[in-house]
Design a binder for these strands. Structure first.
Length: 214
DNA sequence: TAGGCCATCTGGTCCT
DNA sequence: AGGACCAGATGGCCTA
């Protein structure tokens, strides 16, 4: 598997994610939702097994075949399916917990106030996306001012990703602006390197105008 | 109460 | 064969 940009190994997996259901066992969960195998399974089992088994193979033949290939009873098959499903559910649960841990880690590095409502998943992703873009633009502007202090950066050059349409990028801080719990300017107080200007101009070296991103 | 968000289960598909 | 990943379904919780 290719190395993950987020650095999967650094993601903390909490104990409770490893054993998430201390209260109710998986068996309880499964038993409450488990749906019995479909009636068609019986037919399939028969077709999967050797035709002779369905027509009544002699005991001698079955005995000679040995334990491994011995066709399992309906009960055993059902047990096996249930066991596999249970294991798959556990893995899926852990996988989602890992995903949520990574999202939490991402939330942790995004500039929000402690009393802000927790960003939803989609908000976190959009915010991170736009935040990275904003930081990238800041670096670009910093480069411009480094090589030429008098240099100004036209708005067109700063154009937002995706061709400058406001589509995706209209959502910079949208999570919070939509929720009303975090304004762009408020969050930017935590960015020492970033300055906010109410002016529509993009010509302030080193000062990205976040209102242009909105 | 409707709508949004979330966790979980589940079956399908692809890969090793 | 078994694991990872994905998307749909479902039900619970919370808030406007």
């Amino acid at each position: 598997m290719a190395p993950h940009p987020l650095g999967a190994p650094t993601v903390q997996v909490h104990q409770d994610t490893q054993q998430p259901f201390s209260g109710a066992s998986d068996n309880e969960v499964l038993s409450s939702k488990f749906t019995p195998p479909s009636p068609t399974l019986k037919l399939r089992d028969c077709s999967e097994a050797e035709a002779g088994d369905c027509r009544g193979t002699s005991r001698k033949l079955r005995a000679r075949r040995g334990g491994r290939n011995r066709p399992k009873s309906e009960l055993a098959l059902s047990k096996q399916r249930r066991s596999r499903r249970k294991k798959a559910n556990d893995r899926e649960r852990n996988r989602m917990h890992n995903l949520n841990s990574a999202l939490d880690a991402l939330r942790g590095v995004l500039p929000t106030f402690p009393d802000d409502a927790k960003l939803t998943k989609i908000e976190t992703l959009r915010f991170a996306h736009n935040y990275i873009w904003a930081l990238t633009q800041t670096l670009r502007i910093a480069d411009h001012s480094f090589y030429g202090p008098e240099t100004t950066v036209p708005c067109e050059e700063l154009g937002s990703p995706g061709g400058g349409s406001n589509g995706d990028w209209g959502s910079l801080y949208s999570p919070v602006s939509q929720a009303g719990s975090l304004s762009p300017t408020a969050s930017l107080e935590e960015f020492p390197g970033l300055q906010v200007s109410s002016s529509p101009s993009c010509l302030l070296p080193g000062a990205p105008v976040f209102s242009d991103f909105l």
